[in-house]
Design a protein around this nucleic acid. Structure first.
Length: 499
RNA sequence: GCGGGCAUAGUGUAGUCUGGUUAUCACAUAGGCUUGCCAAGCCUAUAACCCGGGUUCAAAUCCCGGUGCCCGCACCA
C-alpha cells in the first residue's frame, strides 16, 4: 500500500491521527487512538520480553524526559548549537564557517547546508588558517533539541531528552550498585524523546516526539558479553561497508560464524543475530526484506566503533528504512559523563579498574508500528487483513451474537468471562456477521467467537461456540469454557531461549 | 531549511481552467425491515468546500497570507 493510503486507513480505524487535528495539525506530532495505543503497548512488551528478558542482569528503568544542560553538554548534543563550524583535523583548531569562507564567499554562509559549505571548501582548496593544511572538515549541525526554561527566575536551562541512551548512561553509577556490581549490566529504557526536526515527514518515520526502546549493555572489554553457540549457523543478511565502497548494492547472506571469521567481534555478531531474530521471528518481518547495513567510518557517528543499521524494505515509503540498530560505542559515553561530572565511572574488575564499554541495541517503536502496518496489512481480494502475530494484536478476540436479540446476553457474559481469564475481547453486534468479521480482520484481531442457536439451545451443542481464525477463515466448534485456555498462550510474546 | 505539487462528508471522489440551481457519486457510519456464519437486499438518516483576508452583485472556483500533506534536495547527532 502507498503511504497515504495506509495512513488514511490507520486514521479511519483510530490507530493514529495528527496531534491537534482540529487546529490543522502540527508537523511531526501524532496521537495514538485505541488500536494504536494497544498495539504500541504490545510491541513494547514484546521488545522488553525479547531484549530485557535475555538476562537477569538486564533491567528496565523509566527516566525523566527532562535533563539539565550539563548532560547534553557532556554527551556532545549541544556542540555546534549555533553557526556551522569548521575544524582542522590536523591541528584541531575550530573556526566559524563564515571566517574561513570570507574571501571566496563574502556574502556569508547563511542558507548553505553543511555539505555545500564543504563543497566550497574543497572547490577552492581552502586551507586551515592556523596550520595551513587542507584537512578542514565541516561538522554537521545538530541544533535539534527542545530547550526549556528551568526553575523560576533562574538562568538554568534544561532540555527534553533527545535520545533515551543518555538516560541509561546517567543511571549507570546507581545501577552498578542496584545490579550488585556485576558486568555485563543491561539498562533498558522505553521512552519518549524529542527532536525539533527540520523536516518531519513520512508520518511515524520522522516525528518530533517519539518513542525509543533501547538497551545499553555495559561490559568489561576483557570479557565481552555473548557467545554465538548454536547461533553460529544463522544466516545474516548484510551489506558490508567495504563492498559498498566498491559499488556493491546487493545484500549477502553470511553465516554468523563467517562474520566473526571476517573480523567482527563475536559478542557483536551475537547481538546482531538477536536483533535479526526479533525483527524476523518475533515481529514477523519477511526475511527477504530485511538487511543489516554497515555504516562506514565516514558515515557513522564518530563514537561508534561498529554500526549496523537494521533496515526493512517498506512498500509505503518506497525503499529500505532504518527500524533498529546495533552500535558498539566503546567507552565514549561513560568516559564523557565521567569527565564532565567529576564522578569516577570506572569499576573494579579482576584486571583492575575499567571504564565499561557500551553495546547499544536501539529500536524505534513508532516506526516499527508503521512497519507492522506496511508489512502485515494486506489486501486479500475484497478483504483487508492485518496479519499481526497474536501477541501483537491490539484486540485479541471479537465476540459476536449470531442473532443480536437472541444471543446478546450469552455473548456479553462470555466477554466478561474472557476478561476475568485475562483475555481482552471486543463485543460487536452491528450489521451482518460478515461485516463484523471484516472489521476485526482489518483491526488485526486473530480470533472471532460467535454465539449461535446451538450455544443457547438444549441440544448437543449447548454451551459450545464457533472459533474463527483470521488468516484461514476456518471455524471450529468448542466449549465456551475452553476458549481462554486456547487463546491465552498465543498472546504471550516469545522469549529468547537459554544461552 | 530550499524547490515543485496538492487541500471538497469518516474514506475515495465530481465540480475549480471558463465565478452563478438545493455541491456529484460510491463506499463507510447510524436507525428500521428482512436475513441468519464471512463486507447480501430494501427504506431512512447523519455527514464536506483547511483557516484568515481580499476582489466581485455573487467565491469551493480568482488573488494574497497562514496551516497541513506529498515528492525531490538537504538533514536525521
Amino acid at each position: 500500500m502507498k503511504s497515504e493510503e495506509l495512513y488514511a486507513l490507520l486514521r479511519r480505524r483510530g490507530v493514529l491521527w495528527p496531534t491537534a487535528e482540529i487546529y490543522g495539525g502540527a508537523q511531526g506530532l501524532y496521537d495514538y487512538g485505541p488500536l494504536g495505543t494497544a498495539l504500541k503497548r504490545r510491541l513494547e512488551d514484546a521488545w522488553t520480553a525479547w531484549f530485557v528478558g535475555r538476562s537477569p542482569d538486564y533491567y528496565r528503568i523509566e527516566p525523566s524526559v527532562i535533563v539539565p544542560e550539563a548532560v547534553v553538554r557532556a554527551s556532545g548534543h549541544l556542540e555546534n548549537f549555533t553557526d556551522p563550524e569548521i575544524s582542522c583535523d590536523r591541528c584541531g583548531a575550530h573556526f566559524r564557517a563564515e571566517t574561513v569562507l570570507e574571501k571566496v564567499r563574502p556574502e556569508g554562509v547563511d542558507g548553505l547546508a553543511p555539505n555545500q559549505i564543504e563543497e566550497v571548501v574543497r572547490a577552492n582548496g581552502l586551507r586551515c588558517p592556523s596550520c595551513g593544511s587542507t584537512t578542514l572538515s565541516v561538522p554537521k549541525p545538530f541544533n535539534l533539541m527542545f530547550d526549556l526554561p528551568f526553575g523560576v527566575g533562574r538562568d538554568e536551562r534544561a532540555y527534553l531528552l533527545p535520545e533515551t541512551a543518555q538516560a541509561s548512561y546517567l543511571a549507570f553509577a546507581r545501577m552498578w550498585e542496584v545490579g550488585r556490581k556485576a558486568l555485563p549490566l543491561g539498562v533498558a529504557v522505553v521512552g519518549r524523546v524529542f527532536r525539533n526536526e527540520i523536516a518531519p515527514r513520512q508520518v511515524l518515520f520522522r516525528m518530533r516526539a517519539f518513542t525509543q526502546a533501547e538497551l545499553q549493555i555495559f561490559f568489561d572489554p576483557a570479557e565481552p558479553p555473548g557467545h554465538l553457540g548454536p547461533r553460529a549457523e544463522e544466516l545474516v543478511p548484510v551489506l558490508r561497508a567495504d563492498r559498498r565502497e566498491q559499488g556493491a548494492t546487493d545484500t549477502q547472506l553470511v553465516a554468523a560464524r563467517d562474520l566473526v571469521a571476517g573480523g567482527l567481534p563475536e559478542f557483536y555478531v551475537d547481538h546482531l543475530v538477536h536483533m535479526l531474530r526479533f525483527l524476523r521471528d518475533v515481529l514477523g518481518y519477511p526475511a527477504e526484506r530485511l538487511r543489516f547495513f554497515e555504516k562506514s567510518e565516514k558515515e557513522r557517528a564518530f563514537y561508534n566503533r561498529i554500526q549496523f543499521d537494521a533496515e526493512l524494505e517498506l512498500e509505503s515509503l518506497g525503499g529500505p528504512k532504518e527500524v533498529g540498530a546495533v552500535h558498539y560505542r566503546g567507552d565514549y559515553d561513560l568516559g564523557r559523563h565521567g569527565a564532565a561530572s567529576g564522578k569516577d565511572l570506572s569499576v573494579s574488575r579482576p584486571s583492575g579498574r575499567v571504564v565499561p564499554h557500551v553495546l547499544e541495541l536501539t529500536f524505534g517503536v513508532d516506526r516499527n508500528l508503521w512497519a507492522l502496518a506496511d508489512t502485515h496489512l494486506r489486501q486479500d481480494g475484497d478483504r483487508t487483513v492485518w496479519k499481526l502475530p497474536s501477541y501483537l494484536a491490539p484486540v485479541p478476540v471479537g465476540v459476536f451474537p449470531l442473532i443480536a436479540k437472541e444471543h446478546r446476553a450469552y455473548a456479553e457474559r462470555l466477554v466478561a468471562d474472557l476478561a476475568v481469564a485475562g483475555v481482552e475481547a471486543a463485543y460487536d453486534e452491528a450489521s451482518s456477521i460478515g461485516k463484523r468479521y471484516a472489521r476485526m480482520d482489518e483491526a488485526g484481531t486473530p480470533f472471532c467467537v460467535t454465539v449461535d442457536g446451538g450455544t443457547v439451545g438444549d441440544g448437543p451443542e449447548r454451551d459450545t461456540v464457533t472459533l474463527r481464525a483470521r488468516d484461514s477463515k476456518a471455524q471450529e466448534r468448542l466449549p465456551a469454557t475452553a476458549l481462554a485456555a486456547r487463546i491465552a498462550p498465543t498472546l504471550r510474546p516469545p522469549r529468547p531461549g537459554p544461552g
